[in-house]
């Protein structure tokens, strides 16, 4: 079972759709811009967390990562394109694996670059307020942020395969992310910590009081993504194309 040709085809699909490249660009631009804005905000708050402040651009930026994961999959369901795709690669597991790689790898790559740029942009504004951050904390923040964005993109890809619709995924996930973040978002240490986005975001904080740590939080997000992907794969396997 050779994955290389299928991977090449799937990568070419991403590169030849302007909207997909645009989404990744938006992920970088939105995150960096909002982090830079956060860098020049008020730092006198006693709960001020310099790492989260610096990476806070991810909160709006993650919507682009979610959109990327959703559109990579949903573009297949446009106009019965999935039939042509599965006629070319009838082994559905092989195709789905290649699809996940082209969701995960660009999302992780752009996510890491974005997190680094966001941190640098915010630190330029934060000045001495961020000096307390150790190198280790910053590396953890940047790597964790990249992994988080990749997992959210995969989560969205799994849901899209399950719903066979990008619109259904985005209209579920985006309000969910916004509601969780802004309504019950501050209730740390509750069940909200185990929600797919909140759990993974713990890695963005310098210190966080809750049951989950930065890496266990990402593991929880990864589990959500795995469940969504299994659901999506089950639907793909079972259904007539």
């Amino acid at each position: 079972m050779n994955l290389t040709p299928v991977l090449r085809a799937e990568a070419l699909k991403v590169l030849t759709l302007r909207s997909l490249c645009g989404t990744l660009l938006a992920l970088f631009a939105v995150t960096t811009a909002f982090s830079a804005l956060a860098g020049v905000s008020d730092t006198s708050d006693p709960d001020f967390d310099p790492l989260f402040m610096a990476l806070s651009g991810v909160m709006p930026g993650q919507i682009a990562a979610v959109a990327y994961g959703a559109v990579v999959v949903s573009s297949e369901y446009q106009g019965n394109g999935i039939r042509l795709t599965l006629a070319a690669v009838p082994q559905r597991g092989r195709w789905f694996a290649a699809k996940l790689v082209v969701v995960a790898v660009p999302a992780l790559g752009v996510g890491l670059v974005t997190a680094l740029a966001a941190l640098l942009a915010a630190r330029a504004g934060l000045g001495t307020a961020a000096d307390a951050l150790t190198v280790g904390e910053q590396v953890r923040g940047v790597v964790g942020c990249g992994v988080y964005l990749m997992l959210m993109a995969l989560f969205a890809a799994g849901l899209t395969a399950l719903f066979r619709s990008g619109v259904a995924t985005l209209s579920t996930l985006i309000p969910f992310i916004l509601v969780v973040s802004f309504v019950i978002g501050d209730a740390a240490g509750t069940v909200a910590d185990f929600l797919p986005d909140k759990a993974g975001q713990i890695v963005l904080y310098r210190t966080y009081d809750g049951t989950l740590g930065p890496w266990t939080g990402l593991t929880v997000t990864a589990l959500w993504a795995v469940v969504a992907l299994l659901g999506g794969f089950w639907r793909l396997r079972r259904r007539d194309a």
Partner: peptide, 12 residues
């Protein structure tokens, strides 16, 4: 095989 004429993604 040719199944549907609209199988190609419009933006490609």
């Amino acid at each position: 095989a040719l199944l549907d004429a609209d199988a190609a993604h419009g933006s490609r």
